[in-house]
Amino acid sequence: MNFTLKIWRQHNADSKGGFETYKVEDIPPEASFLEMLDILNEGIVRKGGDPVAFEHDCREGICGCCGLYINGHPHGGFKGTTTCQLCMRKFKNGETIVVEPWRAKPFPVIKDLMVDRSALDKIIQAGGYVSCHTGGVPDANAVLVSKHDADLAMDAASCIGCGACVAACKNASAMLFVGAKISQLELLPQGRIETEERVKKMVAKMDELGFGNCSDTRACQAVCPKKIKVTNIARMNRNYLWAKLKGKH
């Protein structure tokens, strides 16, 4: 398959970027989007050029590193699919593909298609943990968890922190990410104890880092490669209001 690529090139965070056009030929249909970029980079390097910088790690949809804005959609816009899982057969032969980095103020561009997503790590550091005494492993049935809650917690925990929700949101809001991280802990008895403190700390950090507010457009839910639902945002709002009303810190 042959494609024309319009790729955002930017030397560093301070320099001005722009689109550069590349032609790639003989791409196998079963190649992933990242493999196609690898082939492009091999060609660029052979000619002595500077390869396109993009982030990647596991290449199996788990790590959340590969975040590219493809043809106006985070991860290319195919339901439940990360960029690394996106096969080139999903595109038309000869198609022009526009590739951009995530664009949000809290995600500054490092180089080309790589952005600094450490803001999400800082939110986790603020309260996305469970404090507990270590010790012997308790009996499996010592702490009972309903199947319903366990399923919801598991669904929320599938968030890979790729930042597609922030990239798609017109307000650059990280509330789907934060909502999922709060939900996965709040829904289980071990994490529930610290819910009020956690939600206040994580929301405060999210605001401090410059993420926007949720206006419920649900673009985040539409593009999430792990199909995280906006009901996690509602759960976070519920917990936040309750924590604020109680006023305890």
């Binding site: 319009k6 106006g72 526009v98 951009e100 103020k105 017109k170 650059a172 809001s173 410059g210 539409a222």
Partner: peptide, 20 residues
């Protein structure tokens, strides 16, 4: 606040997302 969060760089291509 939301306008400031989005930053000065805008996407060149914006497509419609399902359900929005």
């Amino acid at each position: 606040q939301n306008y400031k969060s989005r930053g000065s760089d805008r996407y060149a291509v914006v497509a419609k997302n399902e359900g929005v």
